[in-house]
Design a protein around this nucleic acid. Sequence first.
RNA 1: GCGUCGGUGGCGGAGUGGUCAAUCGCAAUUGACUGUAAAUCAAUCGCCCUUGCGGCUACGCAGGUUCGAAUCCUGCCCGGCGCACCA
Length: 398
Amino acid sequence: MNRPVSTDEQKIDEVLSRGVTEVIVKDDLRKKLLSGERLRIKLGIDPTSPDLHLGRAVALLKMRDLQELGHQAVFIVGDFTAVIGDTSDKEAERPMLTREAVAHNEATYKEQAGKLIELSAAEFHHNSEWLGALTYAEIGEQADAFSVADFIARDNIARRLEAGKRVSLREVLYPLMQGYDSVAVRSDVELGGTDQKFNLLAGRALQEKYGQAPQNIVMGPLLEGTDGRKMSSSWGNTITFAMTPSDMYGKIMSMRDEFIVRYFELCTRVPMTDVHEIEQTLEGGALHPKDAKMRLAREIVTIYHGAAEAQSAEESWATTFSEGGVPEGAPTVEVASGATLRDVLKDVAGSMSELRRLVDARAVSEVGGRTFETIDDTITQSATIRIGKHRFLNVVVK
RNA sequence: GCGUCGGUGGCGGAGUGGUCAAUCGCAAUUGACUGUAAAUCAAUCGCCCUUGCGGCUACGCAGGUUCGAAUCCUGCCCGGCGCACCA
């Protein structure tokens, strides 16, 4: 479990550069990594949502790299912060998480994150252990490390103030809590996204206040979703760890070309020399973007599901979309002979009006067969019905 | 607490008594083109049906005025801002 700490300079430099936007303080961290000292690497996890997406993989892969260098992974489950949470979401009233919910999400997290990191060598802590025990006096003391101006200067706060939006005092407390986590676990390095910069820096400030050496910070970029916007579950542009191999493969294939190289760098462990080569051949036109993407999809699916599954996802994708076949895993319904589209598809479409529109748009057809003309068309033999590009339904006539 | 401005479709944001199911932008869906990419073009984008210049339900909530209200009035709820109160 305690592997020796590696001071391989080349590996260390890759750790400090691949998928990294900023390191604070870079020289100091580099020196520490080279010193052979075993460092404590902190990564906070949010137990509110059980589904990890590829955006999270950036920090987790970084953690993995550091683990391989022999450093100690320290995960903080934000069970306390999740409750008091930051209210930046417009959906107000964040529900109080029950202990069961936290435990459940944590278990899911471990299961999913375990694809990327060595779980058995990682520490897990709950920040309710120490945050819940703080007294008002101590909180006041900590709060003294920051000025109101610091907060107002923050981009996201400033923008909301500008726009006349409400900013809760509670949100201002958030960095204090995250910062104190670093004190509690004696963090040497904290990982996070660039959006976390302020909170990460708060850790340094508080550690100094408590007489600890301030942690170094490694910030990674925020991964774009498949459509180029910020990856967010509400946009539907995420790729989650829990997706089936085919879904994951398909999602990656429908991603914008311009992110291919970025995804290789951030979401895979393909050596950077290969990544650079892919980048160059793509630019030179020697490599078709589709082929690059297929390799990318294979690499990523392999991480989460293994090589065999990746292989069959690729084959399934090829038959479905290149040869007009049917994907595996399409839902199946049984109907009586003579059933009409309206009977069979109203639920799939969402509403009758929607189904009418789809049929009018000639979006509903039998795979390899006719295109339906009206919602009263009947189905007399088993077939696979396709709605638009992505939705399939196997219909079995009894 | 007082004053003031505001709460409209997934989001932003028009509309301020009469064809308003609600201009427009974004997002989304579908078709064409493709590599299930992007870009582009086109259509759709509350629900229901016997598809009609059809019916029903919608503009924070509840009432009211009116032939008629998202638009006016009253009360309540929620948010911003200002002032005060409390210290």
